[in-house]
Design a protein around this nucleic acid. Structure first.
Lengths: 265, 265
DNA sequence: CGCGCGATTGAGCACTATCAAGAGCAGTGG
DNA sequence: CCACTGCTCTTGATAGTGCTCAATCGCGCG
């Protein structure tokens, strides 16, 4: 357990400080938390349902997702995590995992013992506030997902998910040269939207036919952001701090980044 | 704005203290927050999407729910709130409403100005921790709802929702003499489960035919809790503190309260 | 006693799932 | 360098769950 280099936790601070002021002391205290870093391969599990959890994971690189398995064997993806995300605060604070967490790609996580994090927040209201707001933001994204799978048709659902991921990647600066990539199979897309992979496949084809996206094997490129937003019934305000300047910019300005690429590599 | 009588905030403390120790100072500080109480009639709105929000609402009595309206006019209910719930922490902390909040029944809310709450949590880590954990618990419920609407069939969805509400009411002591009531129309049940009211109606009939519930006009009575749990694929562990001793009791013990009544009055 | 909202019921339809088979790309080992 | 293997994507045919549309009923209320 050693402290992390500045560069690695910079994204975490950016997230925490989106709505909270941290003092130099707060930052120092956070940086001196005992971290242990672990590397994962794609598909590796970070936690499984039922595990006892005594640590809190922070995604440093790569993508991860949380999911539940149902009685009938079905799977529902609950959230997609990007670098900088706190991956399982709920598990850490309550002590047990009620769903599983799996890597989408290879990547690294930093783990902090729950006890150390609890000590920190007991003495640093600002850090706790940052974490709380992050949780509130996650909850807001969850509630949008409820809406997405509950009341939208397949076409809208998928467009909405693509918009969300695009916007969140953009907010953390992971769209460079107008393109970005996340590695999700159509089956994973299906499990995130409550559809079947077959239907996702057909819907992607339809979006492609309408010129909203392009896609070759394992990669999706947004061709027409404005239309994708329209089709996806997408309004980024629920993303709060996870959207780029969501508070300030009017909706219109949130949208366009010309020809951005989503490569589902 | 006057302080609230002890009796009224007792449920709030019970919630906050489920996972956190509050000192006498913490409690006093909380009790001296400037509260204003407001009464609502059934169907009245507490907040509407787009509102600027500068206060935090605590449900003192009655039931409320949050919902979103979609582009096509559809409605999705995101959460059902019971007495003692913090109804819109997200809105209060971020300053604007991204969904609407409406009363299910008549009831009362206490409002605290966001600034006063922020002052309090800046000085009382324990209170902030309680609120944070409450938010984490809400997020856990959200994620279960995603699963519910995303991957379960109509029968399972409705059974699951009935189980959840029953369990949560039980946790706050609102099931007396083995019966309890919440006032939800079939249309509201539909908007919470992502179904149509017509299909909810038919599914309730089917559950009734199988002896899992009884129902007359606007009231549902659980006849066979064990079977309802089985049909609803219900495992209360996601409820965390919102379930009765969810941490301690094995699953089997969570379940039965003989012939409990849900009156959807 | 008339009104109104919610519950109920029926008929037909549509979106999405299911089942099944084949194709394409990537990584592996010979 | 090339079969082998496995996974994901793709496509077709068929079925079904849940939706839509529409009308009627029933209870609570003024």
């Amino acid at each position: 357990m050693a402290a992390l280099p500045e560069a690695v936790i910079a994204p975490v601070f950016r997230k925490l400080e989106k709505y909270t002021e941290l003092t130099e002391d707060d930052r120092d205290a956070f940086k001196s938390l005992p971290f242990s870093v672990q590397s994962y391969t794609a598909r590796q599990h970070v936690a499984r349902i039922g595990d006892r959890v005594g640590r809190c994971g922070i995604l440093l690189s790569g993508f991860a997702y949380r999911y539940k398995i149902l009685a009938d064997g079905g799977r529902q993806i609950l959230a997609i995590h990007l670098p900088g995300d706190f991956v399982d605060l709920q598990h850490a604070l309550f002590g047990s995992a009620v769903h599983s967490i799996q890597m989408l790609t290879e990547g690294k996580l930093a783990f902090v013992p729950t006890s150390a994090l609890e000590d920190l927040v007991a003495h640093s209201p600002a850090v706790q506030r940052g974490l709380w707001l992050d949780t509130l933001q996650d909850a807001s994204i969850f509630s949008e997902w409820i809406t997405n799978v509950g009341r939208r048709d397949a076409r809208t659902r998928i467009a909405h998910l693509l918009c969300e991921v695009a916007m969140r990647l953009r907010a953390i600066g992971m769209i460079e040269a107008g393109s970005y990539s996340i590695p999700m199979s159509q089956e994973q897309l299906a499990d995130a939207t409550g559809l079947t992979s077959v239907h996702v496949n057909r819907t992607l084809h339809s979006l492609r036919a309408n010129g909203l996206i392009r896609s070759n094997r394992r990669s999706i490129i947004i061709e027409d952001w404005d239309q994708l937003v329209a089709v996806g019934d997408f309004d980024a305000s629920y993303l709060r701090g996870a959207a780029l300047n969501a508070r300030m910019e009017p909706r219109a300005q949130l949208a366009p980044y010309p020809n951005a690429r989503i490569s589902f590599a």
